[in-house]
Write a protein that binds this DNA or RNA. Structure first.
Lengths: 338, 338
DNA sequence: ACAGACATTTCAAACGTTTGAAATAATTGA
DNA sequence: TCAATTATTTCAAACGTTTGAAATGTCTGT
């Protein structure tokens, strides 16, 4: 890379025949610097397109002004949208973000953590991999005084940590309530992998809505899938096994699962297929291309989750919140009727 | 943020009662350092979890080891997948990446460029916004000797620049050839916005395939849309206006457009609807949820595009390629039959 | 015992900023 | 006119590394 003479404070100082500190202070608008001097310096800086060297400033300030974000992947729109919130809030506050994908692989997560540790990020935002049960690779950060905020994925094995999570209980409650209000009495719940805490939180939202509305519940209305398509079909089969009294509505853990389910129900030409009303979590744009779109979606507001994670992290970085004063922030979901 | 005494070379040196430079050289495995000393230093460094301060190194080396990536958004799977290639190759080579989204807004693009300039990235990878026709906000980088590689979106107004592009001509040629081989003689082409150079490259691929196979062409087989749904429907209407001799196959600029098109054709109950064979660019996962999936997809290999962009950038950074020796790299597409 | 040859360690400057303290210049009042 | 005051500029150290040159230590052969 060609090294044209870099424009530094020293270079400006020589050009203007003054000391480096005067130039520095002039650019930082120190009150002790003469107005005319300031003007001269600032004009010269603009003319030569001076940009202060971040590495030098970071070294001086013992900061990197970089936030690390570790997440499973960017193909899932939830994460991609959450990044939008993080990025927005970070840049507004003078921070850049470095994103690292783990593809739900623990080894990669550890690698990412180590890399970001070396990069000396000022803070870390993490959506843990499905495999993560031990958090020692993140402990190093707190040892160095670098705050870590877990978001989206609940690190339920890790008691003392900062979390920003979607209020998935409330989201599932509202979805169920909506279906009840439309007259359904046989509402099925198709959950995600049982290891994920959200699966149970959503189930609780579902069951609470049923109870509060005195809708009877039976266990054949509930099934789980680990996202795999065949697995989903098995689950759906079990939900609709009772042909006398099949469910008339369905709440599904995630939209892709729901789409698989709908497709299957259609393929077997389930009698009341077009009467079944479905709701899934996600609110993805795919919906508009489907022949039988769900009646509503639970919008999880990922941008807001990301923004809240970044906001909390910033408060920790700025010592506005004690690092040991562990916070839990919940972001409400919103039911979107199509 | 709590500042525990930071572990620096100086700190290690004091602990070991030797000079800072010995410690530094021991850690960097200098041949002039005694083996036993090296071992002592390295053990102590490991024990105290010493990690060298990147800012200091960057300052010394006049590098940031950060690559800036400017792109329209991360909701489009093409970009998200391309990031995977960039990230992979960057981290393998000791670089971090900072991603900045422009949302196809020129003002945001300029803002991003300025921010990354201040961050003193070592190189820039850019997919320009739809609005970008002037490239002066990127000139600053080359003025500083920082290489810029344009990828995915062809900056056709910018003659002297490095580019990595998908071979969209070849992709469209193969798609058309495939349909011809299946016996189609009336193949329609639904293009994207006319301002985008890819629209024309793909058209050329289409028309060349027709010509080389002596398939007759008529202009009512071609229409354009700007991605807007209503616009797409208008385009489709014009393509299928000739009810005597309608197209039997369709090549579409992008899958979302194609999905809108299919949905529309189905809704009007086009007579031979289920016979029409379609191909779109993208190969998105949505396909599996559709009732009438396209027969094939043009896989654009975004990961490879990203990796190639990063590879080229690295060669420029390392002076393996002269910065004025402008490169153009084409990445082939692959037809995926479903 | 000592010059010469190596082996090993340390010095010191540099990267580009920031900032309190010290130095200098300009202005005021008596 | 000259000390006192205020305005302005400069000095110098620090942030944590790297690295060529200089210094020190150790060993060899005569």
């Amino acid at each position: 890379m060609k090294q044209n003479t870099p424009i530094t404070l020293k270079f400006l100082a020589e050009k203007l025949k003054m000391s480096v500190s005067t130039v520095s202070k002039a650019l930082n608008n120190y009150p002790t610097i003469n107005e005319y001097t300031k003007k001269r310096v600032q004009e010269m800086a603009k003319e030569l397109r001076f940009t202060p060297n971040k590495s030098a400033i970071n070294l001086k300030e013992r900061k990197s002004r970089i936030i690390g974000v570790i997440l499973p992947n960017l193909l899932d729109h939830f994460f991609t949208r959450s990044i939008y919130g993080v990025e927005q809030f970070a840049t507004e506050n003078g921070y850049n973000i470095i994103i690292s994908q783990t593809h739900d692989d623990l080894a990669k997560e550890i690698q990412s953590a180590n890399r970001l540790l070396k990069s000396r990020v000022d803070g870390l935002i993490v959506a843990i991999s499905k495999q993560t049960q031990n958090f020692s690779h993140f402990d190093q950060f707190e040892n160095m005084g670098t705050p870590v905020v877990y978001y989206t994925r609940n690190p339920s094995f890790n008691l003392n940590c900062h979390k920003v999570l979607g209020n998935t209980f409330q989201g599932c409650y509202e979805a169920t309530q909506f279906l009840i209000d439309r007259g359904h009495q046989r509402i099925a719940y198709l959950g995600g992998p049982k290891m994920i805490s959200f699966t149970h939180d959503r189930f609780n939202g579902y069951i609470n809505a049923l109870k509060n509305n005195h809708v009877s519940f039976s266990s054949d209305l509930v099934a789980y899938t680990d996202f795999d398509r065949d697995n989903t079909i098995t689950a759906i089969q079990s939900l609709f096994a009772n042909s006398e009294n099949p469910p008339t509505a369905l709440v599904a853990f995630k939209e892709p699962i729901l789409f698989d389910a709908i497709k299957y129900l259609k393929s077997i030409e389930h009698p009341n297929f077009d009467k079944i009303e479905c709701i899934g979590f996600g609110n993805t744009s795919v919906i508009s291309y489907l022949d039988f779109p769900p009646i509503a979606s639970v919008e999880e507001n990922p941008e807001s989750v990301g923004e809240n994670a970044m906001r909390l992290l910033l408060q920790l970085i700025n010592d506005e919140i004690e690092i040991q004063n562990y916070q839990k922030v919940m972001v409400d979901c919103k039911l979107v009727v199509h």
